[in-house]
Each structure stands twice: as structure tokens, then as C-alpha cells.
Amino acid sequence: MADVEFHKQEDLNDVPLEGDITVPGLKTEDDEISTLDEPVRDTILRDVRAVGVKFFHVLYPKQSKALLREWDLWGPLILCTLMAMMLQGDSGDVDSTSDGGPEFAEVFVIYWVGAVVVTMNNKLLGGNISFFQSVCVLGYCVSPLAISLIISRLILLAPEQTTVLFVIRFILVVIAFAWSTFASTAFLSDSQPPGKKVLAVYPIFLFYFIISWLVISHTHS
């Protein structure tokens, strides 16, 4: 008995019974950064940095594919929630004191459904861009308008609303609108065949125009 057991152990020592669940033909893990054993802080910071880089690309638009290659929906989600919170009407008790502004959900729906419809339009026209890439770009490109909304909220804090202040807000929103449209077309219009560029850009224009209208119409502080 003892002899046999000893023999078995020796065998085990010679050929250790261990394996690896690797599919033949796949790359080994050596050439990739392992994200399993890094601190959580690093993981979060890397994602935050990626989102930050994308915001920078939108605010300083130049022909770059970074926004397209690695899409995420964090930025759009943050922007959307921010804008919906700032734009939502003061709902008052029932309706008598409300200011007629949109509800939170209405802004939210306009933002996402708008982005989806514009993307679908892009795809239906024959553009070669993936669905989420386009939604990501459209979402990120709202950021100039979000900035203009924040500034106009600050302007609205002034005790007396004069025409001059309104003109300032108006100019701000117009600049932000042009900026948003320009940035998103810089990223998206390449994906269209030549005869259809205008057809693809028009819905984008309309989408940002509507959001600009929401921003400029928001009159209560």
C-alpha cells in the first residue's frame, strides 16, 4: 500500500497535474496590461481620464478619430442628467404656478431619443458608422451647450433681468450651438457618401437647435 502511494506521489511530482484554460491560437496575456490586480482607483481614474479626453476633443474639435474609436456613454449620461436637472421646469403644486418648462423626463427623452433618431437617420442614409459610436459623438457634442446653460443660469441669478443680459445669453447660446454642430459634423460627416452629406447634417443641426431653444427659453433662475 505504502509503496503504491509513494509511487503515485512521485508521478505527480514528475508531471504536475495542472493546466491552463487557454484556447490554442489566442494571444498570451503578456502583451496586454492586466487589469485584474490593479487598484480600483487606477481603473476608475483611467475611465475618468478617457471621458475627460473626449470632452477635450469636443471642445477643441479637430479631425480625430479618438472619439469614434473608443466610445462610451458615460459622458452623454453625465451631460444629459446635468442638463435635464438644470432645465426642468419649476413644477409648483399642480400646474397653476408652473413655468411651462419641460419636465426632467422630457429633457431626458429629447436628448436620448433625439440622438437615437439622428443616428438611425445616419445609418439609414447608408453611413458606415456603428450605432453607439454615433450616439456617443452626438452626446458628447452637447457639452458646449451644457456650458452655455451653466453660464446662463449664473446670469439669471442677477436680480434684474435686462435686455442686455438677454442679448448676452442669446449670443452665448448661438455660439454654443454653432460649436456643437461644427464639432459633431467634423466627427460624423465623413461617414456619408458625398451626395448625402447635407441630408445627414440637417438632422444634427435640428437636434442641437432644439436643445439650444430649450437653453435660451429657460428663463427662471
Binding site: 437617420n121 439609414l124 442614409l125 447608408g126 451626395g195 448625402k196 452629406k197 447635407v198 441630408l199
Partner: peptide, 9 residues
């Protein structure tokens, strides 16, 4: 559905 969007400017 793409065939319904087959127009140019």
C-alpha cells in the same frame, strides 16, 4: 428600410 432613405440632396 434603407431603400426609403435613398435620396440625395
Amino acid at each position: 428600410y434603407q431603400q426609403f432613405f435613398d435620396v440625395d440632396t
